[in-house]
Amino acid sequence: MRRKQWRKLEEGCFIWLMRLALLIAVVGLGSILFTITSRGWAALSWEMVSQPPSAGFYLGGGGGILHALLGSLYLATGATLLALLIAVPVVLYINTYGRGSKTAEMVRLVLNILWGMPSIVFGVFILGLLLALGLRTSLLAGTIALALVIVPILARTFDEVVRLVPHELSETTLALGTTRLELSIMLLRQTMPGLLAGLFLAFERALGDGAAVLFTAGFTSSMPSSLFQPVASLPLVIFFQLATPFPEVQARAYAAALILTAIVLTFGMLGYFFLHHVGKHVIR
């Protein structure tokens, strides 16, 4: 009898510990959102998002961060498209032609390693290539570095959805006399909502990553103009503004952080929506 009470007590203790753990996370999230909103809201203005910086911006001069906003959107869009072109064929390959093979196992292992790879390593890698080729930082180099960061994210999310497709469906498709390429197309249709969700997740990560673009996209105060010119990005604008000693410039960093968080979380929610509510061609 005492043994039973002890077991109940153990469970009760752990339930409270678990609730405490969740509470800590909720408090942490609340604290982040509250801090960013309360500090950022005050410095937020239309000028910030509608104008490029004017002279002396980092000393408290006028202007805004339109250049970084656009730069970030260009970088993230390009990187997402590039990652899509690499990740989708690879995932379809390991689920059709290479299903259950050593190659598929190797690719999944490499994807796992790349997923855990710090984004600064990709940045330094592209920097090393640029130095070896004698090139400068540019929008293109930043896009490639970011694409490398998000390829494993996109591929792993997509792979998980593809693996959920019932094997019977693939067998039925093959039994109709399709080639494996046509089977891949079937899988692609079947997993479209999951792929879209993965795309938004990847886009979100690309927008927020500053370490990969630090050496590759460079930094500038002018608007993005060409693929071969450096561009500014939101994470770096926040980082550099915060590093200045002037309170009004720091306040603008808070506002920029609020803008970045809002954009990123919006795309996160869109991804969530696509995962759960879209799927015209999905056979259930």
Binding site: L22, L29, S31, I32, L33, T35, I36, L242, T261, V264
Partner: peptide
């Protein structure tokens, strides 16, 4: 209610975490 908490935490960019770190 709780699932979005982890999703939001995963989505917040590193630089914003850094900012929160400095301020809080």
């Amino acid at each position: 209610f709780f699932k979005p908490v982890t999703d939001l935490l995963a989505g917040i960019p590193p630089v914003v975490y850094g900012l929160w770190g400095v301020l809080v």
